[in-house]
């Protein structure tokens, strides 16, 4: 031990060296004209276009060059990254519950959803089916999904925001039809009996369906469905719009703590407000999201089939309640998988 003490001074020197090595790698806070938008998977193409449009708009208005960095991933994963310290200036996620979770860790005000027009959702979407060309299995409606021998592809609602919309859409369809939550649960259970694989994210499911040739029907966001036709060929797949589906509202919000730290509040506000402008709404419609503005909706009406849409609020209350009833541990999703 004596031996050890003689060398403690050198040991401290070693520690100091090591710490400084790590220390130099730490980075300075980003400049005030840079934003980080933390988003979910399917919005990559949308925000690529929106960011370019906003940069042009901002340059024209203020003369400043703005850089918007993007991070994409599963909605829940992204929310958790923000909670754990990913310094997002704005979050644009798949469902309100994920932003609620960020608000719970005091990164933004709990009334965030009232701060921007229309529940802070500048665009909406819905849930549709993608089938193989010619619709060989004749899938038209939710009831067709429970038929024996139909392979249904949907991601895991525990890890994917999109999958929660899928789940609630199916549930809501049956509950509206029968008025019974019990029957809705049995119906959803029957659907999941036909699910051969639960990918962790919406994009994983799409690839399972398109590239690996598994399943007969993919339950997907409407915007993803259009993207699939563009990417993988309208000669191979087609979209089937069920008569009834859910109004999916992916919300956006400013992360107060981070914009105050970066000094980017004004820019972040301008960015999110920009999403409501006619120019941005046009881009939204072009990317197959349903625009909020009546003008854009009218212009692109032919693109969006007439589906009877119900909201989460209509049937499930707030997103927090929906999450608790259906997707938390022991919720209905766990119950339908209990052997």
């Amino acid at each position: 031990m004596k031996h050890f003490h003689r060398h403690t001074s050198r040991l401290t020197a070693g520690i100091a060296l090591f710490s400084s090595l790590l220390g130099t790698a730490a980075q300075a806070a980003p400049a005030a004209n840079t934003l980080l938008n933390v988003s979910y998977d399917p919005t990559r193409e949308l925000y690529q276009a929106e960011n370019a449009a906003f940069a042009g708009y901002w340059k024209q208005k203020t003369g400043q060059t703005v850089t918007i960095n993007q991070s994409h991933g599963g909605s829940g994963k992204q929310a958790r990254a923000v909670i754990d310290g990913l310094e997002a200036d704005v979050v644009t996620l798949a469902l309100a519950y994920d932003i609620d979770a960020i608000a719970d860790s005091k990164l933004l005000a709990t009334n965030w959803q009232q701060r921007l027009p229309q529940n802070s959702t500048p665009y909406t979407s819905t849930i549709v089916f993608v089938v193989r060309k010619g619709n060989p299995k004749g899938i038209r409606n939710w009831d067709d999904l429970v038929k024996p021998g139909i392979g249904v592809i949907t991601p895991n609602p525990k890890t994917s925001g999109g999958a929660r919309w899928n789940y609630l859409a199916a549930w809501g369809y049956k509950q509206k039809q029968t008025g019974s939550a019990e029957q809705a649960k049995a119906f959803v259970k029957a659907i999941f009996k036909n699910v051969p694989v639960l990918d962790t994210g919406a994009r994983g499911s799409t690839l399972t369906f398109t590239q690996r040739g598994l399943g007969d029907v993919l339950i997907a966001w409407e915007n993803e469905a259009h993207l699939i036709l563009n990417e993988f060929g309208a000669d191979k797949f087609e979209i089937v719009a069920p008569p009834v589906s859910i109004l999916a509202e992916p919300p956006v919000a400013i992360v107060d703590r981070n914009v105050d730290k970066h000094g980017t509040r004004k820019l972040a506000e301008a960015y999110l407000n920009f999403l409501y402008t006619p120019q941005a709404q046009e881009i939204i419609a072009k990317n197959s999201y349903r625009p909020r503005s009546a003008a854009a909706a009218k212009k692109y009406a032919s693109q969006f089939p007439n589906i009877k849409l119900f909201t989460v609020k209509d049937l499930f209350g707030t997103w927090r309640q929906a999450q608790k009833t259906h997707f938390s541990d022991g919720g209905t999703f766990d119950q339908i998988y209990t052997p």
């Binding site: 790698a25 730490a26 754990d84 310290g85 990913l86």
Partner: peptide
């Protein structure tokens, strides 16, 4: 975080 040292979600975290 309060002292402006970013480790996780940046290069040092990956390192």
């Amino acid at each position: 975080g309060d002292h402006g040292i970013k480790i996780i979600f940046s290069t040092p975290g990956i390192v």
